[in-house]
Design a protein around this nucleic acid. Structure first.
Lengths: 176, 176
DNA sequence: CGATAATTTCTGTATAAACAGAAACAACCG
DNA sequence: CGGTTGTTTCTGTTTATACAGAAATTATCG
């Protein structure tokens, strides 16, 4: 698969941004390529197009599958695995957010629960410590609950909601 | 400053999570300590409590300031700088989100704009490429606009909104 | 304008992550 | 059962990041 100038530009950028999003360059590049491709690609395609080692592709695919944004697609008359990304960008965004919450927020929430309890039971800790830990716990908990509720909305409703933007406040009477 | 068991637990955890959030351990630990401390701390306090090199503290403070969540506090009769975190956790969350948007989303949005334009002008690119890039651009753009609008709400209104949770859908008539 | 205190920048080292290539493993076919 | 094709795991190397300690810079005070 030969890349156009635009495709190459996007893949390179996506690869660099990946490092800021907590995945390595190759993982993000594989994702970008699968996202643009007009057919499912096999590992060999990825190796040739991106110029990285076969083993590296294997690891990257596994990582992307653990995120839930790449899946295998059976191709008629082909033995080897072919891969594709989630087609719908909104769904992809949701899935990534779910996973980030699970990895980046939930463990902290659980730990804060413990810390708050222990701080309340402890002689040594100051009111300041208790207060701050509790505030943090409450905030993350509130956000978590909110997110879970949004998440149950069908994608269509969510998009509609987001597109409403600031009109929402007016309807809700939160501000002028 | 001597740490209680709870404080130590929180600081260590925050440090580890930091790496998942895109900052290094020391940066996150400094932030955690300042967050719990009941008074502004100077660099020497941080060195002693966390057991890291002075230079490392200097770099970490600079990083936290670039995020906008740590600021210096003048202390009467003291020459050296003292530092504190943003007190309000909701404000802190907003500031971090702003910064992440700026670093992790905005550059991609700009690049996608270019890619979409170039793909439309190009002979080589397929419809699939054009479509996918456009969808991605539209989604990120919509989200960005939405976020900007939320951001203008006073913190109080935002909290109220988040706490409403799924009641919002009912009011808006998006779902049953 | 020195002298001292405080902070930042620089430089080398240690640590961790990414990656290529080889080896091992698994699946499928005649 | 071999032979072939495809995938994953392992091992060493490279590369990037984090960090300590030293040196340089900046600020503050007598």
């Amino acid at each position: 698969m030969k890349l156009t100038a635009v495709q190459q530009k996007f893949i390179l950028h996506w690869g660099e941004m990946g490092t800021r999003w907590g995945v390595n360059r190759t993982v993000a590049q594989v994702h970008a390529l699968l996202f643009l491709a007009d057919r499912p690609l096999n590992a060999e395609d990825l190796v040739e197009t991106l110029g990285v080692a076969r083993s590296n592709i294997s690891t990257s695919i596994k990582e992307l599958q653990s995120w839930g944004i790449v899946h295998t697609v059976p191709v008629l008359g082909e033995r080897r695995d072919h891969f594709a990304t989630t087609a719908d960008v909104w769904e992809m965004f949701q899935v990534i957010l779910d996973e980030r919450k699970k990895r980046e927020i939930d463990p902290t929430l659980a730990l804060l629960r413990e810390c708050v309890d222990e701080a309340n039971a402890s002689e040594a800790d100051t009111d300041q410590t208790r207060r701050r830990l509790t505030e943090l716990y409450d905030m993350l908990g509130t956000l978590g609950t909110w997110y879970t509720q949004i998440r149950t909305l069908p994608t269509g409703a969510m998009i509609k909601f987001v597109k409403m933007g600031s009109k929402v406040w007016k309807v809700l009477g939160l501000t002028g």
